[in-house]
Design a protein around this nucleic acid. Structure first.
Lengths: 210, 210
DNA sequence: ACTAATTTGAACCCATGAGTTCAACGGATC
DNA sequence: GATCCGTTGAACTCATGGGTTCAAATTAGT
């Protein structure tokens, strides 16, 4: 709409976003390229100008979203870099932010799509390794290791502790959101976060707690 | 092959099993009724003699499998009904059996299918409520409550404790099996089980542990 | 052996949708 | 205003697959 080659970039972006939206709603097989073109506000041949295939269109859309989601989650870990004197409060905060990310519309859709099409798109595994939960766990484990060295935690096995922290967050969500169908209350999110942090601290916290 | 109307029953069973196998491998949309018929060792019209639709065929196949999987998991909880004097060993055992069930081929496929097609089959949610993880959690919470009353645990919130027990098991699996693609070592399963039980007991166990 | 029901294979109809072609269009750039 | 390039819409081809039909074969029950 404005400068020189912005047109192409805009179109490409629009196509990727539209594609992810449609794929998320209908799944790969049921999504029509025509629908995607409509969703992107673009003609069908234009889609094929930018993407050779429906398959590569799918891959690119997935990758773009996965990258965005991972960044969002890494940002949620920020407070752990410099926790105040109240470690529990900081953990509560981080846990809550992660839960918000987990329940994010895009995030759920991405997760569902990966689960769904991992059989027909085995190479999407690389994508999971690149931008998946592993990366988050590494970052979290780093933070926990630091905190342990500083005497704020007893996370003698940071990787395990990080894994369990994530599990204590994600598990209850799965039970509560019914495959991402049901929306979850913000207050519930806080409750889940607090319960997870409480158990986490009992297991890996500095000393015994009442 | 044998008695009176066994023929019909056999065919029906074969169709359901074949259907689930094909659906699990290819997903709903990509699975051809012809493939299913072949997998069941049956002609295509025979499939339509027993099932009106591809959709109802799918639903029936899902339900049969969900029922079987739930029973298997409930059976895994049995040892908790009468734990020996070594509670940790009993929990390790139960955790291990649950992990085996979680990593079961059929179980993973069922989970993937539900995730995949929950959008196009919203009524499959009832199926999840009937035979899903909720039911397992209820049963587990009952056991934990009993154990708490008997002074073997301090699970003051049995539902929460049960939820976290399951989470500590399922979470690490998800990270390790890469969407059910990678096979997992039996020894790894034991390790995950022990780590989960250790954290669980630190949070909900009778007294502090070294 | 006779009958009724079921299964079978093959062919068929029809809807859907991927991917292509092409002539016309629009808006930059010189 | 001539040119170039990406875009557009519409129509087209072709493969796939759900669901049906039917006559022949098979099986079950008496």
């Amino acid at each position: 709409m404005t400068t020189t080659s912005r047109g192409r970039i805009d179109k490409r972006q629009a196509i990727l976003e539209g594609a992810f939206a449609v794929f998320a709603r209908q799944g790969y097989a049921q999504a029509g390229v025509q629908d995607i073109a409509d969703a992107a506000g673009v003609a069908k041949p234009t889609v094929y100008n930018h993407m050779t295939d429906k398959a590569t269109l799918f891959r690119n859309a997935l990758e773009a979203t996965a990258r965005a989601v991972l960044n969002e989650r890494l940002a949620a870990l920020e407070p752990l870099a410099d926790p105040g004197d109240d470690l529990r409060a900081t953990l509560d905060d981080v846990a809550y932010r992660l839960l918000v990310s987990y329940t994010d519309e895009r995030s759920c859709a991405l997760r569902r799509l990966l689960y769904t099409e991992i059989t027909t798109f085995p190479d999407a595994l690389d994508l999971v390794k690149e931008h998946g939960p592993q990366r988050l766990n590494e970052a979290l484990a780093d933070r926990l290791a630091r905190l342990t060295l500083a005497g704020r935690l007893r996370a003698t096995h940071p990787d395990l502790a990080a894994e369990q922290f994530s599990s204590l967050l994600a598990g209850p969500l799965e039970a509560r959101t019914q495959m991402g169908t049901r929306v979850i209350d913000d207050a519930d999110l806080r409750t889940v976060a607090r319960a997870a942090v409480r158990t986490f601290l009992r297991a890996w916290g500095p000393e015994q707690e009442g």
